[in-house]
């Protein structure tokens, strides 16, 4: 039993990781009060940037950072549309997805059919020797280990630093934040660009660690899952980890169910992750665990006279 369960759980962590990065990124953006439906576009641009920069410099870490920078750049476009030009956040986000996917496909054509070094499995000394836990969590690649730290840093920043509290204020009640001497527009810039950075990192995971390849459309809807998981997580990083692993886990599980020879239509098996996400959300909301969105989410800040 354990021989079968361990690979599934290890695969869960891996397939949850890119979604986790993207979910945290979108969460930061939304907590600053801006809805960005462009996650899919930012993620795929990140994947491409990571691949190209790693290929050019030979350093996957530089590629990883480049992915963040590319995501942030696209995020800045969203910020420009919504924070300066007062554009509707839904349209701007969707436009960003269309634009990003197109741009990545367009710029990425020469890189198809090539491969770059990327991140390989790296067992953590001592920890990887732990029974069960070691197998699941500590025989992964470096980017997975980074992703373990990420939610904690996120949580600490939002909870314990004045910057985090200010970002939340900009998301909850920009007028009050402004009255308190903060600059909610600047904070939202931070939220959107910083969020874009994290989303881009998620893209890098796909092209540098999960695989070492580039193909157009390789995010395959993971950005949208991240948008959904932010809500699923009630805008809290801890639950984002749970959501990303739940989703990744069911995906890994249904593939293994097939590999073991289950004679079930694959379309029905593939419904599992989506159905279960709604079900778990409904169950936790019904228990009263639900938290509303940041009150200022999706509402632009009117320029003051």
């Amino acid at each position: 039993m354990l021989e079968l369960a361990l690979p599934i759980l290890a695969a869960t962590v891996q397939s949850g990781t890119p979604i986790l990065y993207a979910t945290l990124g979108e969460m930061l953006t939304e907590r600053s009060g801006v809805l960005n439906l462009g996650v899919e576009g930012m993620m795929i641009i990140g994947a491409l940037a990571a691949f190209v920069v790693t290929g050019a410099t030979g350093s996957p870490w530089l590629g990883f950072l480049a992915a963040g920078a590319a995501g942030a750049l696209l995020g800045a476009l969203h910020a420009l549309a919504c924070l300066v030009f007062q554009g509707n956040q839904v349209v701007s986000g969707l436009a960003l997805t269309i634009f990003g996917v197109g741009l990545a496909d367009f710029l990425g054509t020469p890189f198809i059919g090539t491969t770059v070094p990327g991140f390989d499995k790296l067992s953590v000394p001592l920890l990887s020797a732990l029974p069960v836990f070691g197998d699941i969590f500590f025989r992964q690649d470096a980017l997975v280990y980074v992703s373990y730290v990420m939610p904690l840093v996120f949580w600490l920043t939002m909870r314990r630093t004045s910057l985090g509290l200010a970002v939340d204020a900009a998301g909850e009640h920009p007028a009050a934040a402004s009255a308190a001497g903060l600059d909610p527009v600047a904070l939202r810039w931070f939220g959107v660009v910083g969020g874009g950075f994290l989303v881009g990192l998620g893209g890098a995971y796909l092209s540098l660690a999960y695989t070492h390849l580039w193909t157009s459309g390789m995010t395959a809807g993971r950005g949208w899952i991240a948008v959904a998981l932010v809500i699923f997580a009630f805008w809290r990083p801890g639950r984002a980890v749970f959501g990303a692993y739940l989703f990744g886990g069911i995906m890994a599980f249904q593939l293994r169910l097939q590999a073991m020879g289950a004679d079930l239509p694959s379309s029905l098996l593939l419904m599992l992750p989506y159905g279960l996400t709604v079900f778990v959300l409904a169950a936790s909301s019904a228990r009263g665990g639900g938290v509303g969105a940041p009150r200022g989410l999706g509402v632009n800040i009117e320029p003051q006279e």
Partner: peptide, 25 residues
Amino acid sequence: PHAFGGIMEGLILLSVLAGQFFQNY
């Protein structure tokens, strides 16, 4: 390439969106 259509569409949407700004501001 097909992808160029996506780039153009994204640009059009973003600029129409930004353009609407001038209606009120």
